[in-house]
Structures are given as C-alpha cells and as structure tokens.
Amino acid sequence: MADLAETDEAMTDAAADITDVVCPVTFVKAKVALEELEEGQTLSIRMNDGEPVQNVPRALKEEGHQLLKLSENGDGTYNLLVRKAGV
C-alpha cells in the first residue's frame, strides 16, 4: 500500500464506521458505503481489530478497489482509506 501524507484525511470523500457490526456484515456495510460513491472517490472506514481488519481490506481489494492506507487509531480500531474502482 502507498504511504500518504498526514493530510490524506482531507482527501476523503466519505466515511463509514463498521465497528458496530460483526463479520460478514462488516464487509457488507463497507461494500454498501462504497456503492454510494463515484468511481475514483475515496472512503475512510473505521473498523475493529481482529476479524474485521483481517478480512475487510483483503475482501475490498479482491473486489478491485484500491487500498490506499491502513492506520492504527490506538483504541483497538483501524482506519482504512480505500479508493473506489470502476465496476
């Protein structure tokens, strides 16, 4: 994954929080949030450590989306920055 500057948060077109659900709804919710965006737009997804961070980034990549950055928040959650690919 590319390493971006601290200002990447400003680039984000939308944000989703999937810390309130468990797999596979985590992936479903992320997918749904991405569906709302145009191709090329970026989404910031907050997810829990464990199954979500192990599965969701990989699953989104398999769907063809571009993973830009994954950062740890220090509270047991992660932030994934993903760019929507063309469908």
Binding site: V21, P24, V25, F27, V28, K29, K31, V32
Partner: peptide, 9 residues
C-alpha cells in the same frame, strides 16, 4: 444488512 447479507454480497 445482516438479514440480507447473503443477498447483498
């Protein structure tokens, strides 16, 4: 989302 997750995927 959970109820229809197997559809939405």
């Amino acid at each position: 989302l959970e109820r229809y997750s197997r559809h939405i995927i």
